[in-house]
């Protein structure tokens, strides 16, 4: 006799994973950033198991999407591998810190940190569309030493784009922290990778996105093995989320190719804002310093999210009008 209760729970988790995968890929933040809040806030999963499952799904989505990107030759494997020196080291530090935090029963810190990371990730991700091709900067000594030049064919503008990365050292420093967050919170920390490659190393957005996608798998693999031995990879949860998130991210990237209307993304950024604020509230409640009624927290988070996203949206529209482009 099949246990119907367990089966429906399994299918429900797969469903949650699909939703997380879709939102994660549409916003560019990756499945983990949505999966952990969904599992902890709505499914009542302890955060240590949610983080472990999220790391596993992060590897799955990274491998799934990177196989398409690397085939087109946009991802720069050489730059990726070079930066992995820092992210893998960071992931080890992050995963060990995670184990210490959980052993000390300080899970509320993870909730709080998670909320803050999601909220601060939204702004650079919203803004990133603006600087698709960065202004060229003169090559520095790291450009030559670490062979940071490359080119790819841009389908939309139908031309070959040549680029040269700079400030490898700064990229490495930022990537170390991206690795720490990945190991600590079970996410791909895409926003920090954007900061490291777009801003610090001056690489074109397409190269950054695709390279970071391929890198996330290596970073998450490093962290997840430590989770495994610590017992935070729960089979039931990890199996269901890996299947769900992978399906979701496939659907997400298919939608992304079809939808030219970028306005739809704002709805998802609003959802992320809501999740971030609710995670912070949950963290505060769990810390026992202050009690926030879940329902009050829920309503306040929704209100906050709506206002914040509305303001960001208006600000961007005004800027677009001032620049005269639509």
């Amino acid at each position: 006799m099949i246990d119907v209760g367990s089966l429906s729970e399994f299918l429900l988790i797969i469903f949650g994973g699909i939703i997380a995968g879709i939102i994660g890929s549409l916003t560019g933040l990756g499945g983990g950033s949505v999966l952990v809040p969904v599992l902890t806030l709505f499914y009542g999963v302890p955060i240590e198991y949610a983080t472990g499952a999220s790391l596993i799904s992060t590897i799955a989505t990274s491998a799934g999407s990177a196989s398409t990107y690397t085939k087109k030759g946009i991802a720069n494997i050489k730059i990726g591998v070079g930066l992995e020196v820092a992210t893998t080291l960071g992931a080890i530090v992050g995963a060990l810190t995670f184990a210490l935090v959980v052993h000390a029963n300080l899970q509320w810190i993870l909730f709080l940190l998670f909320g803050i990371v999601i909220l601060t990730s939204i702004i650079p991700t919203v803004k990133r569309g603006k600087y698709e091709f960065p202004e060229e900067k003169p090559a520095d000594f790291t450009s030559r030493l670490f062979q940071l030049s490359g080119k790819y064919h841009d389908d939309r503008s139908k031309r070959d784009v040549k680029y040269t990365g700079v400030r490898w050292w700064l990229g490495e420093i930022i990537m170390f922290f991206a690795g720490v967050l990945s190991g600590l919170l079970g996410i791909g920390s895409g926003a920090l990778k954007v900061l490291g490659m777009d801003w610090a190393m001056n690489l074109p957005m397409k190269v950054t996105t695709t390279t970071s996608n391929f890198m996330i798998g290596i970073t998450a693999a490093t962290g997840s093995s430590i989770y495994w031995y610590e017992g935070y990879i729960q089979f039931f949860l990890a199996a269901a989320t890996a299947i769900g998130v992978l399906i979701g991210s496939r659907i997400g990237s298919a939608i992304l190719l079809k939808v030219s209307n970028k306005e739809i993304r704002w709805i998802f950024f609003a959802i992320l804002t809501f999740l971030g604020i609710d995670m912070i509230f949950r963290g505060i409640t769990k810390s026992h310093y202050y009690y926030i009624n879940p329902l009050t927290g829920f309503s306040v988070a929704i209100g906050f999210a709506a206002i914040l996203i509305l303001l960001l949206f208006i600000k961007m529209k005004l800027e677009e009008k001032a620049n005269g482009n639509f």
Partner: peptide
């Protein structure tokens, strides 16, 4: 190299999700 990497990733994802799915079905 990039086409090899892309190929490895694709096979690995199929293999792994296949095994996880088979295991889950067996578990039920």
């Amino acid at each position: 190299l990039t086409s090899l990497v892309s190929w490895i990733l694709k096979i690995a994802v199929f293999l792994s999700i296949g095994l996880v799915t088979i295991g889950s079905i067996m578990m039920f």
